[in-house]
Amino acid sequence: MTRIHLARMVGSYGVLIALALLILFGYLRYENFLGLFNIMSVLRYNSMFALVALGMCFVIMTGGIDLSVGTVAALGSVAAAYASPYGPVAGVVAGVAVGLVVGLINAVMITRMHIMPFIATLASMLAASGTALLLANNRSVPVSYQSGFTELGQGNFIGLPIPAIIATIAFILGWLVLNYTATGRGVLAVGGSEESAKLMGLPADRIKTLAYVASGGLAGLAGVVLAAQFGAGQPIEGVGWELFAIASVVVGGTLLTGGVGSVGATLAGVLLLGILFTVLNFENGLGWISLSAYWQSVIRGAFLLVVVILQARLVAGETTRT
């Protein structure tokens, strides 16, 4: 077994084991941890991060990175809020369209202008943030409560939060694309070695374009859920979402170097981080510790650092051996 295969197994199974142990810990320690209200709240709130992480997963599997997802979600929430008086469909179309446009711009900068993904998406991150603030006049944009738009974030369907259903459908589609289509195999091939993929006749630029456009569209959809859930477009929201997405993807075993990844393990990574923050909130309630919300960023960074170091050692060891 190669070290890269070991990294994949550690990510896929390690995150599931950690998730199960964390849930067991919470069940044994806190009253109502597995109560219906808490479960529904976790699923509803973390659906936004799940959508962003799904797009990030495909981008990272191509060997790239998308730093713009948080501010694109904020911009999408503003666009959706302005369109919300015309109904839920109009709100979804507006938010997703904004994300698709930013994703396409990222793709053009990376594939046509040959700008490094880090720099290209950093530029679009700043541009999207400024655009959101300009459109919203530096304030929250209230949504329409009469059009039914808020049901996308606050409503339930067959007893489940609608945001969680949206995220579940997106992950099922992502899993099918990755595992059963030529595009999915192309994503992994390009991430493994872009030059080799081109020699095999794969349209590397088109595959990367699809990945970045999908990432932008999913970030825009997360913005729609954000606006519907909180009742307003939030131009200053989304700060640190890219870190949450990257941490979820990497904790799930996707290599930052590309070529290896799992949609299912990414979802497990989202749930692991989301439930971990829920545990901290419960612990605050017991009074044993007192951690502010800012500690979430510290924990995300620590998770990311530990897993990246582990991945780097495994891959470096495999490179040295070969």
Rank of each mutant, 00 (worst) to 15 (best):
Q234D: 05
I115E: 11
Q146C: 02
S292W: 00
L34Y: 04
P117R: 09
T121I: 13
G301V: 10
L178H: 10
G231T: 14
L135N: 06
G253Y: 07
V143P: 02
S196P: 00
V98K: 01
G216S: 07
A164R: 04
A268C: 07
L21K: 09
L133A: 08
V10L: 15
M48W: 02
G253Q: 04
F118G: 11
A197N: 10
V260C: 12
W241C: 07
T278C: 02
R139I: 12
N106F: 12
A204W: 12
M40Q: 13
I119Y: 04
A136N: 03
V224R: 05
A189P: 00
V250Y: 06
S144H: 09
L75I: 03
G148K: 12
L19M: 04
L280D: 08
G264Q: 06
G76R: 10
A128L: 04
L36E: 02
F33I: 11
R3H: 11
L67G: 05
L24N: 01
G252V: 00
V224W: 07
A182E: 01
L210A: 15
G64F: 08
I246A: 08
A211M: 08
V187F: 06
G148W: 05
G259W: 07
L19C: 10
F303L: 13
E318K: 07
C57M: 10
V298C: 08
R3Y: 03
L152F: 09
L152G: 10
T320M: 11
S292P: 00
F230W: 15
V263W: 01
Y212M: 11
L243A: 03
A74H: 02
G238N: 06
G55H: 00
